[in-house]
């Protein structure tokens, strides 16, 4: 039997699967904590919800689970992949104005 003591903790912030509710799309952000043994085997996993980015046709906003207000920039810093999601959402609702119209 090898030593099964705790060797390390791996912590990462991940974006979950999108949840669709009518026109609204919710992107959950969670922290995944992985506890590893000395043999580099996974001992335990903890998934903690942190925040969510809500995209509506008119607006986008972030909600933090700890109750504090959260800005879009703060959630972007937390989870980088959300930047593309937001950009895509904004692009789909962007109105292009053609100035060359006669």
């Amino acid at each position: 039997m090898g030593d099964k003591g705790l060797s390390g903790m791996d912590m990462r912030v991940q974006v979950g699967k999108e949840i669709k509710a009518g026109d609204r799309t919710i992107w959950p952000v969670m922290r995944i904590t992985i506890l590893k043994t000395c043999e580099d085997k996974i001992m335990a996993i903890q998934v903690t919800p942190l925040a969510m980015l809500i995209i509506e046709p008119e607006r986008q906003y972030a909600v933090s689970f700890d109750g504090d207000p959260m800005s879009i920039e703060a959630i972007m810093e937390m989870a980088e992949p959300l930047r593309d999601v937001l950009e895509e959402a904004r692009a789909s609702h962007r109105i292009t104005v053609d100035f060359n119209l006669r």
């Binding site: 979950g16 699967k17 969670m30 996993i45 998934v47």
Partner: peptide, 8 residues
Amino acid sequence: LDDPAQTA
């Protein structure tokens, strides 16, 4: 899986 929470 496509959802990390589901994977866990």
